[in-house]
Design a protein around this nucleic acid. Sequence first.
DNA 1: TTGTATGCGTTATCAT
DNA 2: ATGATAACGCATACAA
Lengths: 347, 347
Amino acid sequence: MRNKRPTSFDIAELAGVSQSTVSRALRRDSMVSEDTRLKVEQAARQLNYKVDVNARNLRSQRSNTLALLLYEDPGTSESLINPFFLSILGSVTRASARRGYDLLISFQQSSTDWTADYASSKRADGIIFLGYGDYTSYLEKIASLDEAGIEYITWGPVLPGQPGHFIGSDNVQGMSDAVSHLIATGHRRIAFLGDISENCPEYRDRYQGYVQALAAAGLPADPALRLDSQTSEEAGHAAALRLLDAGTPFDAIVAACDLVAIGAMHALRDRGLAVPGDVSVVGFDDIQAASYTNPPLTTVRQDTAAAGELLVENLLRLMAGRALDQTIIPARLVVRQSSRPRGPLGA
Amino acid sequence: MRNKRPTSFDIAELAGVSQSTVSRALRRDSMVSEDTRLKVEQAARQLNYKVDVNARNLRSQRSNTLALLLYEDPGTSESLINPFFLSILGSVTRASARRGYDLLISFQQSSTDWTADYASSKRADGIIFLGYGDYTSYLEKIASLDEAGIEYITWGPVLPGQPGHFIGSDNVQGMSDAVSHLIATGHRRIAFLGDISENCPEYRDRYQGYVQALAAAGLPADPALRLDSQTSEEAGHAAALRLLDAGTPFDAIVAACDLVAIGAMHALRDRGLAVPGDVSVVGFDDIQAASYTNPPLTTVRQDTAAAGELLVENLLRLMAGRALDQTIIPARLVVRQSSRPRGPLGA
DNA sequence: TTGTATGCGTTATCAT
DNA sequence: ATGATAACGCATACAA
């Protein structure tokens, strides 16, 4: 037979103060003398008292909780989650914990309007979106949130005139750096693998960075060197094969993401081409697997630690009625062994 | 100027029923006529009503929420989370969502007694532990939970006479299968890399599976073939070098986990040895990177999808006062290219 | 600084 | 099957 859980009234009795004083003393809002605070804390410890968060949340009308909503492409395989998102998830978790917020997570696949539930049912004070799925359904979601007056922030492409609040990597700069690196190391025929439709604005930005870097070097962006590829190793493999079969000459491949780059490396090897001997390959994301490939993949690193920090930081700013701070995170080229100098400059 | 959020009273008024009837109709506990249910649901939709979970939780004394607590080794690098745990996290998320539970997650590093807070503050109805850190602090945690009458379940080694409730892979069987496979393909001098101290009971089980398989084939477990290694690529690399430097002959390496195996492969290559040409290498876990290594790593796959499912399933059973169901998950050998037949049998 | 009284929005209990 | 009423445990407004 276990004792009933103590309430703030029990603490009040034990400490010889009123219940409201207990409540005050246990938060850090002060307005209590050092003396009573010690008495209360002592009593609370003695009875092993813990504030009932449900009562607190009901009364204060806030939950001290953030929700992280991860939307996967319906096409994604049921069991796997994009490792890149998982990495952000990890840093968001830490960042919100550091600020005293609990984190509720949910992986959505269907486009239920469950989104708003989280906030309008007062489960969470703010929402972080990861992988928002298709853009139209995303717009519906944030519309309902705006209507309900709920704060949210989204990881994704930072575009001008966008509805909502976004935090994202500098995809243009990141890919531009990668391509500039290839050009500087003697590559001239650089293929781009990735889906640049409007469904993937981030890949679109990366492609723009690619074009930009070529232009800066006075090189044309040959349409024959751009191939569509979904976000998977298999798709990257297939895209590289299409490129090879087309007979278009090329000396490097940049991929919209690491998975595609890895698939492309396998395709090249399957056809007897050496990486980086015959072709350099560069990815984007720097997922963990990127450093384990053979050769280790040169790629553009998205700073997931900063991402989580900035997402939480800015969401809290929004919740406090303030404006966003920094929203774009620099992406950094990580040179490994899948790319190397060639031509007149190289060995 | 936004309208106030509607309450159940508003719905009651609109639907022309009492407020308590609204509450009944909105849950599935029935006891309401089909007619009134429809009226209520209609009114709720019309006003875009959502139950306030804080009020509901306060009144019903349950939160419909599970908490996932991930404890990392303090030694682990600040920013990285074991990909294997992340994978379980993904499946736990789905499993709890499927059962209508919200999931609260927290990554702990210090050994604060924050653990009990989650449950005794009524934030969560049950707790799932992942990576419980060191065993003694774990025992303290669960003691306070037991005292508070809170249900919890832990991912880890399933050992006889253990306090608490565990779900885990069959580490003995998994590693035994792996070693038997190596023996069957002609390997005779198989090294084991991993920490088998009492801090790592799971690795200990794997080592036991190793010994068992050797014994079944009438082979001795040469102490010179067992080397300590922490759980990281660098440690695996170093351990393999020590093995090589010792001069002990060997034709295969099994590692306590994939990261160690990957490090060992790199060490072998550094010394000019071919995998699997000269030495076969086998890991454990089947993390994503395992299939991207060169050659792709033969390993023992832990079924993380089943793990999440079973953790949630059994936690709910405990919460319902029932006994645990299945607690051990079979581990399955995945043969890739880092191992291959040799000797009289092989090429 | 502290105490008193009230209410947050729902579910549970007891009627009918 | 439905309605009236109390209660969940805390935080806030106001008074002292």
